[in-house]
Structures are given as C-alpha cells and as structure tokens.
Amino acid sequence: MARVFHVTAGSGRSAARRAPRHEPAPGPAAVPAGPSGGGGIVAGYLAPHPPHLVYAENPPQNEPRSTGGWEVLRWGYEELRRRLKAHRPDVLVVHAPHWITMVGHHVNCVPNPRGVSVEPIFPHLFRYHYDFRTDVDLAEAIVDEGARAGLVTSALREEGVRVDYATIGALHLANPDWDLPVVSLSANNNPYYYSDASLAEMETLGAATRRAIERTGRRAVLLASNSLSHLHWDTEPELPEDMGVERPFDHAQYAGDMALLQTIREGPTSRLKEAVPAHIEATSSETKAGSLTWLLAAMGWPAIAGDVLAYGTVIATGNAVVEWVP
C-alpha cells in the first residue's frame, strides 16, 4: 500500500500560495428552501462514486455487465433517490474528486455534455454513455461568485472534455433518470503533484456556491462525491463483484469511519470542522479532496444531524450515503 495519499498538501510555501487571497467575510447561514418551493439548498448528500456501484447495477448506459454486489450501499442509494425526488429540486450540484484540475476550481458550463466515459483506472467496470443538461446560468454564477471570493476559477466551455467517473457515478446513483439539470465542479487537487485540497478554499467555494444558488433562485440538492477511508487493495479478484473478499482494509480504517459517522449522526455539523481533518489524517479519507467540506460550507454548517442511509466497503474503501436536510 503506497502512501501517495498520505502526504501533506504541497510544501508550506505552496500551501500558503494556494490559500485564498481574500478571506471572505463570514456569510449568513444558508437560506433553507421553504415548503412553497422557494430557492435555496434543500438537501445535501454524501454520495460516494465507486464505479463498482454503477457496474453492479447494470444500467443500460454502462457497457460492462455484472452479477451484482455491494447491495447494502445500493439500497442506501435507492432510499436517497426516493428522498431526493420528494425534495423536488431544480438542479443537482456535484463536487467530484476525479475531475482533477491543477489550477483553480473549474465549473462545467457546457450546455449538453455527452459522450462515452471510459474510465482509465477501471475501464473493465465503467464505460458509461452520458448525455445530460447543465444549468448554465447557475454554473456561471458559481464561477462568478468564486472569483469574487478570491478563488481561481474557470468556466469549462470546451465540448471535448471527458466527464469523469466520480461526477457521473454520483449523479447516476442519485438520479439514474438524469431528468434534472446538473452543475459539475472540479476538484482542485492532484494525487500526482500535491495531494490534498485546501479545506479553507473549499469553505470559500461552498459559500460561493450558496450565494450563486440563492442569486439564481434555484432549489438545489448538493452531492459531495466522496468515499471515506481510502486505503485499499492494489489488486482485484477475478470476479470484481466477489463479495467474499470485500471487507474493510483494516480495523483502524473501519473504526475511523465509524467515529466520523457517529459524529455525523449526533450532529451538529459544526463538529465536523474538526472531525473531517482528523478523519483524513487517520484514514486517508477521500474527503481530502474537499467535496464534503464544500457541501457543508454551502449549507452553512447547519446545526443538525446527518442521516446515515448506508455504509459499506468497495475494494476496502469506506463509503457512506448520508443525507442532511436543513
């Protein structure tokens, strides 16, 4: 097991350079959407993206066929789907760690991304035909608000960029009908240069996302496309969905996940400001990519508990489906 995902983000100097140039003033708490259908963030979900979950489901968009597997996590997603529809959102906003951008936070502003996403890491599991609509107005508003907050941002308008599996995975698993517009945000981190996202920047990006949602009057559901503990095997069984070999990497990884999930279940979310970095340190959690911090910051760190819908491992990584409703 390599330690590539254990290292601190950049050198001290580069980390300092990556901090926001302007610390934004504390913003107001998120405006909850009213029952009459007003704008705002109506729910946030921790929505892990292992391609195995899409593969196991055998949707028509994905070329490989499976015999199933990882059912408990997929049942959790079934409940998420039911709840998501009840929230009647206008748009899904997803932050995903595998659209890796070296410079800044990018937002997909292509009106109709479509193509085949052959995943270079898991091409035997994920060759997904995607075709969805972007809420371009909201996407551009997030770019604008992020830039106003001092972040380096970029609006992707090029048609040819392949959409990554973490974006597609979370969106498919949350809404396989693809009947809602989407805004997709990149992760400004890089496993082969510097590893971790700046969580301070993710706070800023979250607040900018919230302002953009409020400015545009959307009813938005946010998806943080992150797994939890992230040490995993470096080989694979002959049958990828062989559940006979699926288990946590070790007890420490499992215990770290349970400690975080207990904090989530107890609430309030403000406790996660300390718990998330500690969990990253203990388990190399994929939340180091910043998606969960972005989500909770966008929701204004509400004084509520999260509802854990499912937990399970995928090639030994920990994954939880969690809902927060402000």
Binding site: T101, H106, S154, E159, V161, P191, Y192, E236
Partner: peptide, 29 residues
Amino acid sequence: STQWFTVLGHQVQCDDRLRGRRTDENWYA
C-alpha cells in the same frame, strides 16, 4: 506515464492503435 495512474494491478495497453484527440481537463483553454 505517471499520468496514466491506476490503483488495481498493472494495466498494459493492448489496443493496436490509439488514435484520437484529447482535450485536457485542466489546460483546455
């Protein structure tokens, strides 16, 4: 190439021709 990074096993490219256009997800501008 370290930019073809993977996590399970060692992938060996067995397609006889790799032809196309890549639009880089960071440097597209």
